[in-house]
Nucleic acid binder design. Structure first.
Lengths: 234, 234
DNA sequence: AAGTGGTCTAGACCACACA
DNA sequence: GTGTGGTCTAGACCACTTG
């Protein structure tokens, strides 16, 4: 069995949600269980996934409803390319630097390395529909990308990492407003004094091992960040 | 029974995580089930909550481990006051405007009202340790805050909303970098040309009804946004 | 009163990590 | 191989919304 049953049902229901439209009432958990030949617990597992993703909401005693889809459902870990495509833009890239350097103290701390350990560095101007969108510097522990020659310029860093078993499942991000320096502004074709969004990101695999750190500077006139936050229990 | 069993176990385990420290191995699900007299399904429910909150991570075949707590676990829906206290700062407030106005077209759309419907408007300079942190404009449908006289300046908008049964459980946020106008900069004691973070937020209750819309302008030199993102399935 | 989602149990088998 | 978490079942009762 390739995918678990609850996962297949989740995708099935995702399609059903699109057809039904916002605030439509979904079939009851018991009916779904019977219709798909599953136990109610499995149905609930699928619905929980949809609820977590913001696709449905549940009201006790009333039923499960399709969430009115406004903006992005929830902030997810994506590569620049995925992000741009989701916004309907064509991603591109101009490599400025591709080399290997010692991590240094600050970076070593974020990547759980020693300061002398080598990291692969990749500096790129990221394009959207051929126009500069952001300036991005990515670092990956060199020990986890064996065989990568200096000067290699992978089409997709995420694809390359994936081939080497580096699978980020989570990332911590810090977002700030900033003014780019003269050099940065020039690379981004920004007028002087225009603001930018700076994003620091450290990505982790399923074992909570750091696999990548990226610092990005986005043009504020072309980019914003959209996400959903939930109320939490103490 | 005030709280469900999985919720009480979750809190119990949260304390255990703090004692054990990062990357410590937690007891197995079966052992927890036996120790607390619960079924394994209930234990898994508690652990799933902790995993979702970023407090633990699970590795199939290996066990469940305490997550290395670095930055904030995940972005949650908080009031300004809660946010500041979480950062170790004392929240304050200076009310600039407290009145009732027609929603207007754009706001009506966000709050699912008609443009002529009245909304309570509250404009405040928000302080942290008595220094300006952000300029915040909040709108709440007046029909859902009956009895609020004009000119009332509630200590906490969230407390007031809570008393009237307005319980936000989710919010959609858009974050941008921006340059404040002259008037805004003056209210925030910012030098001209300094950047700021602008946050648009619409909050919803459990039935996905909009209950509040807020637009905030934060000083970039005193504020950033920290959160965790997860890899998602298609 | 009827029907909904919310919680909980006691089992079973599978997939994976580690020694 | 042994033990872990991952999936799944078939039931039961509770809390809540709605008519």
């Amino acid at each position: 069995m390739a995918l678990p049953k609850y996962e297949r049902l989740r995708r099935e229901l995702l399609g059903m949600c699109e057809e039904l439209g916002p605030r439509a009432l979904l079939p009851t958990e018991r009916e779904l269980a019977e219709r798909f030949g599953l136990s109610r617990a499995t149905v609930r597992s699928a619905l929980s996934g949809l609820e977590q993703a913001g696709a449905v909401y549940r009201v006790q005693g009333a039923g499960t409803f399709v969430a009115p889809s406004t903006i992005s459902k929830s902030l997810s870990l994506t590569s620049f390319s995925e992000d741009m495509r989701a916004r309907g833009l064509r991603p591109g890239s101009r490599v400025l630097v591709a080399d290997e350097v010692p991590a240094g103290r600050a970076l070593a701390e974020h990547l759980r390395l020693r300061p002398a350990d080598p990291v692969v560095r990749l500096v790129r101007v990221r394009l959207a529909d051929d126009r500069p969108m952001c300036l991005e510097t990515a670092y990956v522990p060199a020990a986890r990308l064996p065989g990568l020659a200096r000067g290699d310029t992978p089409a997709s860093l995420y694809d390359l990492m994936h081939e080497h078993g580096l699978r980020p499942v989570r990332a911590e991000q810090v977002v700030e407003a900033a003014l780019p320096g003269d050099e940065e502004a020039a690379l981004l074709s920004m007028p002087p004094g225009a603001p930018a969004l700076r994003i620091h990101r450290t990505a982790f695999d399923q074992r909570e091992r750091p696999v990548e750190r990226t610092i990005s500077m986005y043009r504020a006139d072309r980019y914003d960040i959209r996400f959903t936050v939930q109320r939490e229990l103490p």
